[in-house]
Nucleic acid binder design. Structure first.
Lengths: 262, 262
DNA sequence: CGGGTCCTTGACAGATTTCAAGACGTGTGG
DNA sequence: CCACACGTCTTGAAATCTGTCAAGGACCCG
């Protein structure tokens, strides 16, 4: 199922068909208004162009919303489901950039060069709202505050990456994983899920890539957290017992295992 | 000279005075037009509001252009000199986010919350162009393409951070330092300096913070590069002998030093 | 049921940090 | 002009963390 980087034609069949026929899709919400989009992005509801509607598109797990090198046409807002955003290097190695979920905006890295620099991959059935950039530009001419608000959304993305950078540079493995779990819990809370009990949609490998760690390290750290009673972890099912402890965690108390002189 | 984080009044005296009296400052260029700003940002020269001018402000080494928590009023474009952008955590630890130089735009992390999230510190005498955000918004109403272009500039910043993330996550120390030197050399070339011979304005500590390494590691890796004949390093004076080798470097050939059985 | 992916766990190697000491340079004040 | 203090850089040795390799078990899906 892996698509080699920059292989132009391959992503085409990962795009959804324009025709909706299955029962599942017939019942799905197919359009969102501009004001709904603004609400999802947390923007002030200044925009009242009630007529403008944006199409929804559904993706199945492992399908790509866009791929690196594909020409930039639209921004995307996650309506439902879970995805991952990845960067591919020359040799096909995959670097995870984030795990977008409901209300996240994606695709901004294509604005400058007019080609997406990263890939957006569905990890579950996912529904995204398509915002054709051309439409956005046109709308901005009528509603002068709109483009301004999009600057704010991009500002948020810059800040998110700054914090990620900080985590990678100044924290060691345990703290990185702890903060990852805490941040994830906060995001789940923000979209109406439980903040203390959830299912990881991504593999240890992907978490490791995101945090700059080997998958085994992620596995070990999760195990250690469980030992300490901070969390419960059973494959992908996670329960946080002490979220605040995770937020503040620097390093776990040393516990000599297998030592004969303790 | 260190300013403790979030200490509100302290940054005030780091701001430049509005009166220019010294000989040095009298001869400085004090204003830039919008079209000049667009040119510096690499934007198409669509903007012809010839009348709009932006003020220049000068800073001495260690002075702060803005600080974390300060209310967001303006974006800044580096006109000359060298700076560093840093994030401060609760305990005052400093995380370097970048080393801005000529033509770089800063301050975008304040757009969303209306407060700067990071700090911009001069590392040499530096001159920045002040773009009041209010002015930018007003201009956008007349020139509809302008705000669009600023989205593109922010898009570039997002991409820069994506690559930084990739470097931190998937490369080890030697490759990080090598790519850092290569990228620096390219940037120097871009603003008219030599790409093969330059002076590092930042300390090993700051490079280490930026790359997620200890300062000693940076020092050692630079030493190793010199041993290999890739560069020459004498304190802050750097000469690149094989820039391309640095760009592609994964790891240095192992060289057993101090081993008695070789 | 079989194949594949994902996860866990151990042992080990290797990379990087930490700690420590000394050299080098620079700026300041006597 | 020199001495001194300070920040920076280098270098070594030891400690520690994390990655790598390997094997086995759990789970899922066709």
């Amino acid at each position: 199922m892996d698509v080699s980087p920059h292989a132009a034609p391959q992503w085409v069949d990962a795009l959804p068909s324009r025709t909706f026929s299955s029962d599942d899709e017939r019942h799905a919400k197919l359009w969102s208004s501009l004001s709904e989009v603004c609400r999802m992005l947390g923007l002030p509801p200044v925009c009242r162009d009630g007529d403008v509607m944006f199409q929804h598109v559904k993706f199945k797990p492992a399908q790509r919303v866009y791929t690196a090198g594909q020409s930039f046409e639209s921004l995307y807002i996650v309506y439902s489901g879970f995805l991952k955003s990845v960067l591919l290097d020359e040799s096909g190695h995959e670097q995870v950039l984030g795990f977008p979920m409901k209300c996240d905006m994606l695709g901004t890295d294509g604005i400058d060069s007019k080609f997406y620099q990263s890939e957006l991959v569905a990890q579950s059935t996912a529904e995204v709202i398509v915002i054709p950039f051309r439409t956005l530009v046109d709308l901005s001419k009528k509603n002068l505050d709109l483009e301004l608000e999009f600057l704010a959304v991009m500002s948020r993305e810059v800040i998110r990456q700054q914090h990620l950078l900080f985590n990678l540079c100044s924290l060691q493995a345990e703290a990185r994983v702890a903060r990852f779990l805490y941040a994830l819990s906060q995001r789940f809370a923000g979209i109406g899920y439980s903040s203390t009990q959830f299912t990881l949609r991504m593999t240890r490998q992907e978490i490791g890539s995101y945090l700059g760690l080997a998958l085994e390290t992620v596995s070990r750290v999760l195990g250690a957290f469980q030992e300490e009673g901070l969390i419960s972890v059973e494959r992908k099912e996670i329960t946080l017992f002490q979220p605040e402890a995770l937020r503040a965690l620097k390093r776990l108390p040393v516990r000599r295992r297998f030592s004969s002189y303790g």
